[in-house]
Design a protein around this nucleic acid. Structure first.
Length: 490
RNA sequence: CGGGGUGUAGCUCAGUUGGUUAGAGUACUGGUCUGGGGGACCAGGAGUCGGAAGUUCGAGUCUUCUCACCCCGACCA
């Protein structure tokens, strides 16, 4: 079989790049750092969106849309927020072009904007500026709004889906009357993300909070979910921030409480992005290509006919059409690959590359015996099944694949989660078989930075309900009450 | 922004000390045979050799400048 992918073991990041391109998910565009998401990749994103959107609505949120551009002055209102994003902002300075002397076009210097516009890297500022007008009374709260949008962060180095200059995401921005309520909201949403990751992506995640270093610019607490990729590096899959009253103060958003007293509003924001595509790809795929969870696959089943002549093709197609009707009735999504331009072997390889969970093949033999050949993508196992049982078998096969890939990823994570007590052990693991490392930390920024400098590992999260125990920081030897999770990360 | 590298057909690349009309594989188009794991053969289309300037009788090849992209760092969802 001709190899189109670099082996995972040989060069993990090359394997990832090859996979994204060859599975037809996305490609680099003519614009630096910006990708084109191709139809096959986009349809996976659409599935993610649909599920997440309904989860947001079930938890009481509504969708809205805010501007792409943010006046520069808005940005400076929350000090730490500016600091966090200033270095990666795209700025609009002019609003017109004109013909230049050399026959091309140039920016018209007379069309300079009085105030520059920032292309949003995130929307807290424009949204809180708007909320000021929306919130007057405790009766206006809570305000539970989400938007689906694109944002721009001018990253130095980009990688398809994992880090692009422009990416798609959703950002929830909520306003509350009390600290308690805002904290509950932030936690609720990180749990929504965790459920989504595990039940749909089939990716096990750890839930926790960020250390001060890694916290969102402007947040008082950042909750996150972290997943472990097959190369032992962590990928942050979603964040939910408790913003306290920082943005309310910056944008002067106050409400009158029941006692007729003015108070600042409490806030949260939370988001997941097209980076989830990267998690999905890296968590399950193998040297034959993508492995998609049935719940998010653009189609769950692909049907490949095998035939020698038009007669056979017609007979087989008739039977396939009957099957397709049954699939439709049972809400199993499918594609009948009846292209005559490619031979069966080519199609097998192609659909494996694209990660379709189940392949059904039917040739003259199956036609005679009234059977189907089923092949599952996750284990590559094949079986022959009689026509009467095919729908039931497919249903439990799809369920089984969804469960199996989650289990496989969980087992992998378990095998790559370590508890260490010395810095030597810590470094040794990072060099040999990296993963999540549970270790004691003295809680200081300085120690975290030193460890990052020396090993490139950072604190991915502080577990939500850590096991309390007396320990010593692996770096400084100072006392510590619980372990935190370290890893190298994307 | 620092270090390293690469630009030749859609893609992957070859192209000798400068020397005719710039090649291959693959993909693409047409055809014939094929068809249970990435088919074979025949024919065909496809290029401003990244761009600009220079040296030369002559530049894909040499010189200078420039642009773009890739890899490794610093920055990050």
């Amino acid at each position: 079989m001709a190899k189109v992918l670099t082996d995972r073991e040989e060069n993990y990041s090359q394997w990832y790049n090859d996979l994204v391109i060859k599975a037809d998910l996305a490609e680099n565009s003519a614009v630096r750092g910006c990708m084109v998401i191709k139809p096959y990749g986009y349809s996976i994103w659409e599935k993610m969106q649909a599920v997440l959107d309904s989860m947001f609505k079930e938890t009481g949120h509504v969708n809205a849309y805010f501007p792409l551009f943010i006046p520069k002055s808005f940005f400076s209102k929350e000090a730490s927020h500016v600091e966090g994003f200033a270095k990666e902002c795209a700025v609009v300075t002019h609003y017109r072009l004109r013909n230049s002397k050399d026959g091309g076009i140039e920016v018209d210097p007379n069309a300079k904007l009085e105030e520059e516009l920032i292309v949003r890297p995130t929307s807290e500022t424009i949204i809180w500026n708007t909320y000021k007008n929306w919130i007057k009374s405790y009766r206006d709260l809570p305000l539970l709004v989400n938007q689906w949008a694109n944002v721009v962060r001018w990253e130095m180095r980009t990688r398809l889906f994992l880090r692009t200059a422009e990416f798609l995401w959703q950002e929830g921005h909520t306003a509350h009357a009390s600290k308690q309520e805002a904290l509950e909201e932030a936690e609720r949403m990180i749990n929504v993300y965790a459920n989504f990751a595990q039940e749909y992506l089939g990716v096990p995640v750890l839930i926790g909070t960020k250390s001060e270093n890694e916290r969102f610019a402007g947040a008082e607490e950042t909750y996150c979910i972290e997943a472990l990729m097959q190369d032992g590096k962590a990928l942050q899959c979603g964040t939910s921030h408790f913003l306290a009253q920082n943005f309310a103060k910056a944008f002067d958003v106050k409400f009158l409480n029941k006692e007729n007293k003015e108070e600042y509003v409490w806030a949260t924001s939370w988001g997941v992005s097209t980076r989830l595509m990267g998690a999905l790809i890296m968590a399950h795929s193998d040297n034959n290509g993508l492995v998609l969870p049935p719940k998010l696959a653009p189609f769950q089943v692909v049907i490949v006919p095998i035939y020698k002549n038009e007669d056979e093709f017609d007979k087989i197609s008739a039977r396939v059409n009957e099957l397709c009707n049954k699939l439709k009735e049972n809400s199993i999504s499918y594609k009948y690959d009846n292209r005559d331009s490619q031979r069966p072997g080519f199609k097998f390889a192609e659909w494996e590359l694209k990660g379709v969970p189940v392949r059904i093949a039917i040739g003259p033999k199956d036609y005679e015996n009234n059977t189907w050949e089923l092949a599952r993508r996750d284990t590559m196992e094949k079986e022959i099944i009689g026509d009467v049982n095919v729908i039931d078998r497919l249903k439990n096969l799809l369920e089984d694949i969804q469960k199996n890939i989650f289990k496989k990823a969980t087992d992998f994570r378990t095998s790559r989660t370590y508890t260490v007590d010395t810095y030597d052990e810590f470094k040794n693991i990072l060099e040999t078989k990296p993963g999540f490392i549970l270790a004691h930390w003295d809680g200081t920024k300085e120690t975290e930075e030193k460890i990052k400098e020396e090993t490139k590992a950072t604190i991915r999260l502080i577990p939500q309900n850590p096991v309390l125990e007396q320990g010593k920081c692996i770096y400084s030897g100072k006392p510590s009450k619980y372990r935190v999770i370290f890893a190298k990360s994307y």
